[in-house]
Amino acid sequence: MKPAFRLDQHPRRAQPLLSGPPAGYFEQLPQRVMDRLPQPEAETAAGWGWLLSLPPRWRTSLAASALLTGFAASFWLSAPGGPAGAPASIASIASLDAVPQTELVGYLLGPEARVEPTDLTELAAAYPDVNSSILHASDAEILDALDAQPAEEPAVL
């Protein structure tokens, strides 16, 4: 059987005292760390060298103005009345004028068109003769059709 291990029976080894850093170590440390970092390439495009010579706040303002100019130009060019939208809007109006009015009204009255009754009243107010060209009925027939509609009964409380 093995004897029990007791720590106080074993002598300690002599430990060397902690020594300080060499002279000038902390003064040289930042430069040694910077020397180990990979150096960026000094090559830049020939046309963009002037941009690197500008102060950072000027480069930021230049980038912001370029971004805002691009946004304003894209907004202006994509507007319906803008220069790019003008020929397309004229072409769409011309192609819409080629469709017969009875087909347009038939489409607008159909279930697939999402037209509110107020839209149709605005159309009738803008073009008073639109009803006479579509409805081929006399005033008496229209009044009879309206009278045949069920009336709402007042609620009795």
Score class of each variant (00 low, 15 high):
93 I>R: 13
141 E>W: 03
46 A>M: 09
105 V>L: 13
142 I>W: 01
99 V>I: 11
117 P>N: 07
104 L>P: 00
31 Q>T: 09
53 S>D: 15
96 L>G: 15
86 A>F: 06
57 R>G: 04
93 I>V: 13
115 V>M: 10
13 R>V: 10
39 Q>E: 08
137 A>E: 02
46 A>Y: 02
129 D>R: 09
11 P>D: 04
90 I>C: 05
15 Q>A: 15
34 M>R: 15
116 E>P: 00
82 G>E: 05
116 E>Q: 11
80 P>K: 06
56 P>C: 03
130 V>I: 15
56 P>L: 10
37 L>E: 04
146 L>K: 07
96 L>H: 11
151 A>T: 11
48 W>N: 15
155 A>G: 07
37 L>T: 01
99 V>T: 06
45 A>R: 14
75 F>H: 12
129 D>T: 06
22 P>E: 13
144 D>T: 12
124 A>L: 14
103 E>S: 12
140 A>K: 07
133 S>G: 02
22 P>Q: 13
136 H>W: 00
100 P>L: 03
83 P>H: 02
130 V>D: 01
106 G>L: 08
126 A>Q: 08
2 K>I: 04
155 A>V: 14
99 V>H: 01
106 G>S: 12
62 L>E: 07
36 R>K: 12
20 G>M: 13
8 D>M: 08
61 S>I: 08
14 A>G: 07
61 S>Y: 04
143 L>W: 00
41 E>S: 15
126 A>C: 03
71 F>G: 13
56 P>R: 10
36 R>A: 14
142 I>S: 04
13 R>E: 10
115 V>N: 02
60 T>F: 12
51 L>R: 10
47 G>T: 09
51 L>D: 03
85 G>D: 04
68 L>Q: 10
145 A>F: 02
153 E>F: 01
42 A>K: 09
148 A>P: 02
18 L>M: 14
126 A>T: 10
144 D>F: 03
107 Y>H: 11
9 Q>L: 14
127 Y>M: 09
45 A>H: 15
65 S>A: 15
53 S>F: 01
121 T>R: 14
117 P>Y: 00
142 I>T: 07
157 L>A: 12
143 L>F: 02
114 R>C: 02
30 P>N: 06
138 S>R: 06
108 L>D: 00
74 S>L: 15
78 S>P: 01
124 A>D: 02
72 A>I: 12
17 L>W: 06
144 D>Q: 13
58 W>H: 15
79 A>I: 00
114 R>N: 09
